[in-house]
């Protein structure tokens, strides 16, 4: 990059037009991962940044009292203080607060959080030749490296890059929807369908086309009787990505689980919805034995390496711990 063009358009349509027209252009929101990768690591190459940071896509609104609509440019800090998030989505707030330092929460946006790139140090080091995500077809250096902060679910020998977002873990459990605007108009994508498993094309991470922008995230609120919790396990007590995390929202009625929403972080190439585990828990007594069985199901068929094998057990225990905490609180 011998020169960088910076543009700050006044409207969404103009921003979309600018990026759509230029293959080397990208949106710049909070910038916390974008600028790191572009300027410092040199692993992405944009000749133009279209700064959307001041577009009017901030704040939240409540739709029909049932869905929280979050502007894509709302910061993590502001969303964490949102009254609806505080009251109805405590685990979203917990994930936001555990997700980054105060400085980064003041900068990073919700849309940017959804689109954050992996922390994989093989992806982020342009001198590493083998990276299917960066240069499709070159292989994966991480699978022979000392991988620790890597994925075990949705991973294979082609890519073990972790999706490191904390926020996305409760959001994917809640069936959040992503509202997208692009050159072809608007569309809505369920967050569970938004990310693409690496498979044979780890370079493709999500369903957005060039020039498409996240404008809002719609989060259906769980029932008022639901209790939720996000638990993040990491080496350092703060300011670190998760080794494993679990988000759970439970409705427990008379000791029986009426509804369960579960997702895992720190283990997946995408934010990992534990759908099978949810099914297993619906309608059964809230007991540790049930939780353990569900956790085993959630971690079925992991792809592990010597450095990541411990995550299978850790993630199960993390999920069980969260469920036990919620069941205890409900009783």
């Amino acid at each position: 990059m011998s020169a960088l063009t910076y543009v700050r358009p006044d409207g969404v349509d103009e921003a979309i037009a600018l990026v759509s027209a230029d293959a080397g252009a990208a949106f710049l929101a909070g910038g916390t991962t974008q600028l790191d990768l572009l300027l410092k690591d040199g692993v992405i190459e944009n000749s133009t940044l279209v700064d959307i940071g001041r577009l009017p896509l901030t704040g939240t609104s409540l739709l029909d009292g049932a869905v929280l609509r979050i502007g894509a440019l709302t910061t993590m800090a502001d969303l964490a203080e949102d009254p609806v998030v505080r009251e109805r989505l405590p685990f979203v707030r917990e994930a936001l607060l555990a997700g980054a330092s105060i400085q980064l929460r003041n900068m990073a946006t919700i849309g940017g959080n959804l689109l954050q790139r992996t922390r994989c140090r093989y992806f982020r080091d342009r001198t590493v030749a083998a990276c299917n995500k960066r240069r499709p077809g070159t292989g994966c250096a991480a699978v022979i490296g000392p991988a620790r902060m890597h994925a075990i679910l949705g991973a294979d020998q082609n890519c073990i890059a972790l999706h490191a977002s904390d926020l996305c873990v409760p959001l994917v459990a809640l069936d959040a929807e992503v509202r997208v605007q692009g050159p072809g108009g608007e569309r809505t994508v369920p967050l569970t369908d938004f990310y693409v498993l690496p498979g044979r094309s780890p370079d493709v991470e999500h369903v957005l086309g060039h020039g498409e922008m996240i404008t809002h995230v719609d989060v259906p609120l769980p029932p008022a009787t639901s209790r939720s919790r996000y638990l993040k396990v990491r080496d350092r007590a703060s300011y670190e990505f998760a080794l494993a995390s679990a988000a759970a929202a439970l409705v427990v009625e008379d000791g029986t689980i009426a509804e369960a929403r579960l997702a895992l972080g720190g283990v997946g190439t995408v934010p990992w919805r534990a759908g099978e585990a949810e099914e297993m828990l619906r309608g059964v007594p809230a007991t540790t034995a049930m939780f353990r069985a569900a956790a085993r199901a959630a971690l079925r068929d992991p792809y592990t390496l010597p450095g990541t094998a411990f995550k299978v057990e850790l993630a199960q225990r993390t999920l069980v711990r969260v469920l036990e905490d919620l069941a205890e609180a409900a009783s």
């Binding site: 140090r121 350092r236 007590a237 703060s238 300011y239």
Partner: peptide
């Protein structure tokens, strides 16, 4: 410093 962990305040 995001990957090599030195103690933070909370530690």
């Amino acid at each position: 410093l995001g990957d090599y962990l030195i103690p933070a305040h909370a530690d």
